[in-house]
Write a protein that binds this DNA or RNA. Sequence first.
DNA 1: TGACATGGCCAG
DNA 2: CATCGCTGGCCATGTCA
Length: 1059
Amino acid sequence: MDDKPIVARSSSDAFWSSLGDSELVDFVNALSQRKREDNDEEQKGQEKDEEKNDAEDEIDLTLPDEVWNNSFTENKNMGGVGDDILGSLTLAQKPNVSPEEVSQEVARKVSQEASQQAPDDPEDLNHEEPEFGDMSHYFKNKRFMQQKADEDYVEWLSKRNGGKNPNLAIFEGCIIYVNGRTDPDIEQLHKMIIVHGGTFLAFLGSKGSATHIIASNLTPRKRIEFRNYKVVKPEWIVESIRENRRLPWSDYQLIDNDYGQAKIGFARENERTDVALNAKHPGFLEQFFSRSRLHHLSTWKADLRAEHLQRALEESKTRPKRVYSKRAILHIDFDCFFAAASSLKQLPNAEDFRSKPICVTHGGAHADVASCNYVARKMGAKNGMWLEKAQQMCSGQLICLEYDFDEYERISKLFYDCLLATKPHSLLPVSVDEALLDVSNIAEEHDLEEFMSDLRQKIWLATHCTVSAGCAPNVLLAKLALRNSKPDGQLSILNYSEDEILKFLNPVDIRDLPGVGYSVQKKLMDEFNASKFTLANLRNVDRQKLVDMLGVKTGATLAEYSRGLDSTSIDIASNPDEFTRKSISIDVNWGIRFDTIVEVETFLVECAKVLSERLLKAKMFGSQLTMKLAKRSENAPIAPPKHMGMGMCDFVSKSARLGISSREPGILSSEAKSLYRILGVPPAELRGIALQVTRLVSEGDNRENQNQMRLPFQKAKEPQFPGLSSDLNPNPIPAKRQLEPRNAPKKVTPADIKKRIKDFMSKPRPRTTAIEEPDLNVDQINWDVFNELPKEIQIELQTEFERRGLVAKSTPFSTPKKRKVQSRKTPSPSKDGGQQQLPESLGGTPRKAVLESPLKKCGSPSKSPFKAASSTPNRGKSISPEKLRLNDTTIDMAILQELPSSIRNDIVNQAEAEKEMKTTEMTPMQLKEELVELPRQKMQSYFRALNIPSLQNQWQFSKVKSLLQAWISAGIGDFDSSLSGSYGPLQEDSVVVSAYLSELLWEHNDITRVISLVEHMEICILDKKNRPGYDEWKELVSTLDQMLKEYLISNGSKVKYIF
DNA sequence: TGACATGGCCAG
DNA sequence: CATCGCTGGCCATGTCA
Ligand SMILES: Nc1ccn([C@H]2C[C@H](O)[C@@H](COP(=O)(O)OP(=O)(O)OP(=O)(O)O)O2)c(=O)n1
């Protein structure tokens, strides 16, 4: 990792802070002077090619930075002044020297260097290829022109006044930017400033060339953005002019801190380019993840787990197992990690950390506070709270720092180095800033209090962040001891007697127990009508009672916990399976705003790529994909309080077997699209998307026996070994079963196949209208009939109508209550008395708790009609719904087959009834028919009776897909394979597959499904070029493609919807 | 009875 | 302007053979 000394990057601001006010102004002026000259030159040469050259802007705005980058860092690297200082003076070596002192000293040296070197900087460094369409370029030019106009104005005014000038000295050297609404307004201020010698900045730009900012108040975001400027009230201007001298700005300071003096120029690091505002835009994922703390936390954790598991396994080979007489578990954790770590570089005065409330946040009323220091906590702020609320708790005094993920990572590494250096029996990473250690070995020889104190001291010296530690005979007690010791403390209860332990536990709040969150706490408190629930209370609850309330495991565990008992193991090496990953997923619940299916699918492809990369990184393959969608709750506002947030949502999920262990992005994304269709959440309602891969297998791991889906089509007599695709598990089960050719001759040639298809196509066939769309519209709905329907069916239908946009949300019938509606009853103290009862900002009720309500569990047992209804596939807003035509044997199988079985049964029943009724029209009302549960076994025979084509006895879309996939992967060779003759599809198999697809296409007009399958096959062979068998596969796919084309040509008019 | 699908909760 | 609400594991419950 980055092994630069801590102070290195803090020196740019220190450089500025080392200058006196006038020095600074001089410096800036010198720079801007130079900029102006450059600009003039540039402009002359620019006349032909104006607006295209960025260079003057670069010079204009990056000079201070250039000083920093070119002079300071170069010097440092070349063993110059900076290097000297940094090399001889690390914090760890001289802990008595504060970081500030160090950086000040560095800065003084640097500033000397800078003033010598800056003018010599070769300009061409800044001549970069101009970027097309760079708006900032435009604004910067604008600014320049405005400043020129200002000068002209002053000159004109001076002439007009005949030498009786205003005092130009008042704001001489000041470069002033005015933010937001002010009194006097910006126009007047503008004039006042330039007339009295100041420079007015119309745009702040990104490089911090302003010396002062005028504002009457600031949004939280601005507060952060401007925290390194001198932010003053407008009165400073007015009263300075009145007194005809520059009054001290600090008397008019708007932000109540001394940050204004600290680091102008640092603001450059705040520069943010938003390439993607939401998930519709390319690059969104990357940008989002780069700024998401939770993403970083999760990633770090997974990486640390993997790293330390690996290490533990290697060590355990050489180190003999040992049993220790007394188990000692150490739980160690930084105090308010993000806040402490960000403070290192961002707080000008380190001592503020102990006296002022400080937090890390992106800024904005509804931005999360990732971590706040203990001063803020005392005032009532908490991690995870919304900034608005936290500010309120801290009476507006909360100082906001930025995230610095690199810094956290750097500090974490030092932390883990210190931990490993103690050679614990085992080490289990809990988080980037937190770990569990089995120190039984150390406890045998050392006093643990002393050991802990040593360790903490070492970590402090290395990182300048404080840690706390708890030690106990088990994980539970270690955690509680740690909690008790915070901040900056330690506690060992290793030697407590049983009684002492109980006494220690008695007052502990159950919320402090692992596994007890909002929900469990609430259940217990509600049940016992208590406003506070301690371990002493918990211990008095009958174990059986706990089990009844919370379930077998949870109940029993809590009962044990209440007595201080816990057998959790952290011995990573002794049962590695327990600590290896069982799933790999990607979740995005922010910025999800889509209008069309295409946008969603594009995003799914991006997610699949990321997922694939994660699998690759973990050296794993998976064979099951689960999609979880967050859908805006019916009565949640379209725009939740948190910008681009998810707001209140309902969740649905669905999983599919891939049929093979894979990590191919193509397979993952096509499966994801398919799942999305099945879940049927309209794009506009989507608020969150998650994809999870499970049934993982490691590279080189052979046990994959659970996977009964692999049915390679190849004949056993010519054993085919699956291709070694980099994204397909190279160790699948060898072929066992083979395809049972159905209606296929033993020997056929590709020509035969084509001929058969042709024959098939030329055969006159009955008119089937399966995919015809009867324009359903709201007028066709007989609301009288509707209202007679059972409630459940009404709910189902309503959901469906809405999703098709047939009815408005304000329906003409009684709005069915979804669980979410009921859950609103949950009393949630919401601070923004608005409509949003979201328990969002911590301090109210947590979101999750509202999202799922008790009602859900006591709700109708009819298998969640909402979900059933909404899981009809292929029904998006922009995808027109396919038609269920029940008076015909050609029910749209594409839809039917994906339905939950309960619904499917209903419809099949209905179909039977329809046949007799000979109804020609199908409206939703017909669902009112008495619904009879069909035993599941009968389904198969129904479908058989309905002539649904099947492949290897599989008629379900996903299974068929899996079959094809497995078939192909078994029939493509490795690069090195010399047996090229034995690859490619077997002709018998080809015939069967072709026949199946033909039937699906011509008999059932299931164009959607056929396209999808052929496309899937294409994906499967896509990256297998040049491998043995590829050409043969390619030919087969082409043939199938051709078949599709011919179908489309002859039936084009019938096919309305293809996607 | 156990395997599986789905969904909830929790932690950092 | 805002804001970056991830991710993995365990548990509960219901369904099915
Ligand atoms: N809801 C949360 C909880 C934690 N974190 C991040 C910021 C924290 O600094 C870090 C570690 O989490 P901890 O729970 O250990 O909290 P702190 O370290 O901030 O405080 P402490 O451990 O002293 O209670 O994880 C976060 O971003 N959001």
